[in-house]
């Protein structure tokens, strides 16, 4: 473990704003993509008129 305390970790040596914006934006991007895919899949299944049952 490199950090001495939680506040030190969050401060990121004064670069906290930039570092955390980067990591949170990436996490949001991934979350958004997974949620969007989930909804797309639900919509596609609803419109698929049962072809999934015939193939799976």
């Amino acid at each position: 473990m490199y950090w001495g305390s939680v506040s030190e970790f969050l401060a990121m040596g004064g670069y906290g704003l930039y570092v955390w914006t980067s990591f949170i934006a990436t996490a949001l991007g991934i979350t958004w993509e997974v949620l969007a895919l989930w909804r797309r899949r639900a919509a596609a299944l609803a419109d698929s008129r049962g072809i999934v049952r015939s193939i799976e």
Binding site: M1, F9, M12, G13, G14, Y15, Y18, V19, F23
Partner: peptide, 28 residues
Amino acid sequence: GLYIGLLVAPTDFQQGDSYRIIFVHVPA
């Protein structure tokens, strides 16, 4: 990767902790 990159790896002597952005920037 996040554990090592954010918690274990030391700071960079030139760029300080801003260098940790590379752990998402370069892979992306």
